[in-house]
Design a protein around this nucleic acid. Structure first.
Lengths: 352, 352
DNA sequence: TTCGCTTGCACAATCGATGGTGCAAAAACT
DNA sequence: AGTTTTTGCACCATCGATTGTGCAAGCGAA
């Protein structure tokens, strides 16, 4: 009657109340009761009691017995970023629609942490793991593999499991081209006026840098050696790279290829405190899309990865039989300056 | 020997291998072995075996037995937003440092979904729940309460559990004041030139709107009735609000108070496709901080909620004995235009 | 009446870890 | 040597749900 302080009801409680055995109660509550030839009326009685006593399944117990949990994991490098958080948002929608429970965690781009995180999730018997932007996908793979856990790589490819990745080469090619074409013919960009900032030694960066070099060479005829300033995935390191560059050259390049929105924040930090006019002639290409970034006071051409397509493909792959691991390229989209695109939030209902 | 295909080792396996009983193995592995007076050498043997066989605790089994799981929940309205995703990032840090596992989920600002989500998490015996920006905090409270789950509200207050909220009144007062003061004395703002867009009928919006009205009246002497355009938490509804306004008045107001970065995206959508000059005189105050938003081509004064302080306070509160529920105000910070602040990501290590 | 089939459900083992309790063997003490 | 104390560990019930199996009652047919 009064469930104010009471502990949660179990199938045993309902068993006593209904006069049926625990196994019958269990069958009724998990929907397998027809298969077990339970009488309709018995089922109704039990369902009624369950309702009245606010029964909810103890999912840890179920998980223990079934050795899976209904949890689906998403491992991100970080949360605090439009790209990854929109992954999380999209992922959640997919998982929910399958009646499972999403678990989103971040692993800070640290191989050790990635491994540990995967292990923790495995200890909870998660059913599947989506690995986004892992620094060491194959390390995580080992962990998953030896636990028999299905997993997919997203954004950075692993050698040992299916991967869904953005077509970084093509994206960077389009972006570099767009930057160069943004300058008219009367005052065309020179090879030494376009620099790339950000990135480190991961697959995505390498592809992008390769495309950057190739496209520069193709369109501008030359490509000086020092055109790339690796600065990891850290705003502050990128900031320092800009400061160093500025000190050396007395100015910024006319055009920048910036490897990600995180590096772009490094540019913002450089801008802070310096006069806006210093940046009025700047043209930037950024390999990431952020709606606010798109409206900065100078032209920012962005690349939007197709998050929806990537997640959808990842879900399609993870259920597939284990064919040899393959990489699937998803072509990103070039976004012109001053574009405000819809995101996963737009599917949510809201009132005025 | 070969653990390629093998199922995970359990304490029973180690029990056989070591010649000790399962309970001894358990005690050794969970660290209670000194209390149970297990010989040092026995412990070492077992730990060695555990290492060799890559033993990891089945946390579902442990959770079932202990009726808690080591999971700590964070329920967000949405992921895809700097404010909430930086909450997630900060929250993760705290939970990790306590040796527990963070579970971040979103509930789409839907009371029904919020309730269901809480129930699901409870079914996994999570240890604590942090409820951020819930539409119906008290509904979620009921659910938690009847399961004996510790919980705290963040960002939107509930009547029945402790709450940590931003001081919305003070924040909006500061912001409104800053907007007004941004205009010099030679061409001061008139009362009918400052509008508020966004927000709906929740505690935060009400406070902000109240402060907006009061501050306008105090500083500008008057405050026309129609100065507030509620448009929920949706970019598109906000966009429509701007379109309607523009159609009616033939222009935008000189100054805007925008209720959140999500509404700000509505402004971006309005800007897209219209000439940049249309916005060159605009002054905007936005109740949220986004680094890119801070560098738009017009002055954007922002309010940064003190996420770190809020989360820290929430953790402090959740462990406390159940005193009568209280609300704790955390004062937000006014951010001048063109500021690129550090965030939770800056604590992560990264290389160059 | 008897055999055989269906219906409807109960029984009991199991998933893996935990922790209270009990009890031999070793050590310490008289 | 006999008694008490300490050490070191095993035993077993338990957490809540799942699921393979078994079996009695009911029913129809022969």
């Amino acid at each position: 009657m009064d469930q104010r302080v009471k502990k949660k009801a179990t199938i045993y409680d309902l068993s006593v109340l209904s006069g049926s055995s625990p196994s019958t109660v269990s069958a009724v509550l998990n929907g397998t009761w027809r298969k077990r030839r339970i009488k309709e009326s018995t089922a109704q009685t039990i369902l009624g009691l369950a309702e009245r006593h606010q029964y909810t399944t103890n999912l840890q117990a179920r998980g223990l017995r079934r050795s899976r949990s209904g949890l689906v994991g998403l491992m991100l490098p970080v949360h605090d970023n439009r790209y990854f958080s929109s992954m999380a948002q999209t992922f959640e929608g997919h998982v929910r629609s399958r009646g499972q429970c999403p678990v989103v965690v971040s692993a800070s781009r640290d191989p050790e942490e990635e491994r540990r995180t995967a292990e923790t999730l495995i200890s909870y018997s998660i059913d599947q793991l989506f690995i986004v932007g892992a620094t060491d996908p194959d390390g995580v793979h080992e962990v998953c593999e030896s636990a028999g856990l299905k997993h997919v790589n997203i954004d950075l490819p692993g050698a040992k499991a299916h991967s869904v990745i953005s077509d970084n080469y093509e994206g960077a090619r389009m972006l570099t081209e767009a930057i160069i074409h943004h300058f008219g013919n009367d005052d065309p960009l020179r090879p030494d006026e376009l620099y790339l900032f950000g990135g480190r030694n991961d697959h995505a960066s390498r592809e992008r840098i390769a495309a950057f070099h190739a496209t520069k060479k193709a369109l501008l005829g030359a490509d000086p050696e020092d055109g790339v300033q690796s600065s990891g995935y850290s705003p502050d390191i990128t900031l320092r790279a800009f400061e160093v560059f500025y000190q050396r050259h007395g100015k910024l390049p006319r055009a920048l290829f910036i490897n990600s929105s995180i590096n772009m924040e490094g540019l913002l930090r450089f801008m802070a405190g310096r006069p806006a006019e210093m940046f009025s002639e700047l043209v930037v290409g950024c390999y990431d899309y952020d709606p606010f970034g798109s409206f900065l006071p100078f032209p920012v051409i962005m690349v939007r990865q197709n998050v929806e397509a990537m997640i959808a493909k990842a879900f399609a792959l993870i259920d597939e039989p284990t064919t040899p691991p393959q990489s699937f390229l998803i072509t990103p989209e070039l976004i012109q300056p001053r574009s405000a695109l819809k995101g996963p939030l737009d599917t949510l209902k809201d009132m005025a």
